[in-house]
């Protein structure tokens, strides 16, 4: 990466507006249950992570998480959702993700751009309406594709504000 995009805070960092557009798109695909579109956003070495309470947010290798998917497991999750027999998403939840407080923090050592945001996802299904709020850390990567240079998601960690408390089933894409 050589160009410095307008508004970027560091050489090679993805600009605020482009980062925001990407996060909003990811949220929109999740809300729409566009499973293929959402899955296509991830890099091959991706991590999709929702820590549980306690020390879970510090060490997913020794502590249980609500969700800790590598790329292969993201694929399994999507296949399960697409099977039509994922009962906890049949019918699908009505969900709207609100992404706010977006900040581009800078570059990771490997060149990924670190972005943080606040999340409020409101889910409605027959059980009732559930609010899922938390801080989200993203790592975005620019990759070359047949369509030209595109952003991909290498890492997403959703730290829920109520992760210490009992949670209802979380089977939509948060």
């Amino acid at each position: 990466m050589t160009a410095v995009a307008e508004g970027s805070i560091e050489l090679g960092t993805i600009a605020q507006a482009e980062a925001e557009q990407f996060l909003y798109r990811e949220a929109r695909l999740a809300d729409a249950h566009d499973y293929d579109g959402w899955e296509a956003l991830w890099t091959d070495d991706a991590i999709y992570w929702v820590p549980a309470g306690g020390e879970s947010a510090e060490d997913p290798n020794t502590q249980v998480s609500v969700l800790f998917d590598n790329r292969s497991r993201i694929g399994t999750r999507i296949r399960q959702l697409k099977s039509g027999k994922r009962h906890s998403q049949t019918p699908k939840s009505n969900v709207v993700h609100q992404i706010t407080n977006v900040e581009v923090l800078g570059l990771q050592e490997n060149g990924d751009t670190e972005v943080v945001a606040s999340l409020l996802a409101v889910e409605s299904r027959e059980r009732g309406t559930t609010f899922w709020a938390g801080r989200v850390e993203y790592r975005l990567r620019r990759v070359d594709t047949d369509q030209g240079s595109e952003l991909r998601l290498a890492f997403k960690k959703v730290t829920l504000v109520d992760r210490d408390q009992p949670l209802y089933t979380l089977s939509f894409l948060i």
Binding site: T62, V64, S65, V66, R86, T169, L170, S171
Partner: peptide, 22 residues
């Protein structure tokens, strides 16, 4: 043991989310 557990059980588990729905 840990990774299988995270995958299968709890609120987002491949198994328990559907048990819980039931």
């Amino acid at each position: 043991l840990l990774q299988q557990t995270i995958g299968s059980v709890g609120p987002a588990g491949f198994l328990l989310a559907d048990d819980s729905e039931m």
